[in-house]
Amino acid sequence: MTPSERAAAIEARLSRMKDLPTLPVIILKVLELMNRSDPSIQDLSNLISADQVLASKIIKVVNSPLYAVRTEIRNLQQAMAYLGFEAVKNLVLTCSLISHFAGKGAAFNMKTFWAHSFGCGIVSKLIAGKLGFESAESLYLAGLVHDLGEVVISTAYTVEFPAILKLLQTDGCSFYTAEEKVLGYTHCDVGGWLAVKWRFPESLTQAIRYHHTPSMAKSAKEVVAVVNLADLFCRLRSLGYEFFEELDVSFPDEPAWQILKASSPAIDSIDLERFTYELDEKMDDVHNLIATMY
């Protein structure tokens, strides 16, 4: 299908659906805050304080091994002081997204989904950090939301989704390939449609729509490329979707690697083996954390 045919097919299918996931209000507010020229930590703090369940979840996550805090963080103010605006903002988005989608995706293990998404956010940030990106923290969010289309497919395509799952098992292929075969379009197209509907910032929309085909991104190519690599790393290192995928990746040959190399030649000097083994440590933390959040 051409891009416009895909868009038309998704529009026809999803726009008439009544129980499509809506964007949680808090996320809408955080995104609004991000669009301001001078978002203050106080604004963010006020937003979180209004939701005590969310606030306590954030405190729990901050104290998990992933954040390696030296002394226990007991309240929001300490978390803000220790982690800073960007990180806390990302935590708000993470915790509210996870809670919001907790009951969705009945045919799908949501724990696995969020472990993959959360892992992808963390790995995106680590890659961005390695490449010396100024806004490494902002890459986290792109990694976190990249597969949102998958939640929609698992909820809205009740007839086709089992067929997609079956293909994963029999062919050892990826969701992307299986969806292309069964639906003629993928979670990237569906996620992209949703991201526009939800008025996500353009870089997030691009990451959602093109994380499997980074060369096709219309803007924010580097963000998309980082998310593409992070997604691959997660699928290679025990944060995939529980199906054995016949993946064989030579990172320097990946289009995403080439995109990043153009602006960060240092990418070629990364010790990929060590980076991979270090990620494994994070993966365990991610699994543990998701287990505590569910």
Binding site: L232, F233, R235, D248, S250, R274
Partner: peptide, 14 residues
Amino acid sequence: FGINDEFKLHHFPG
């Protein structure tokens, strides 16, 4: 890493 740059590194699951 740093031992040989003629081989091409591949990642497979795990």
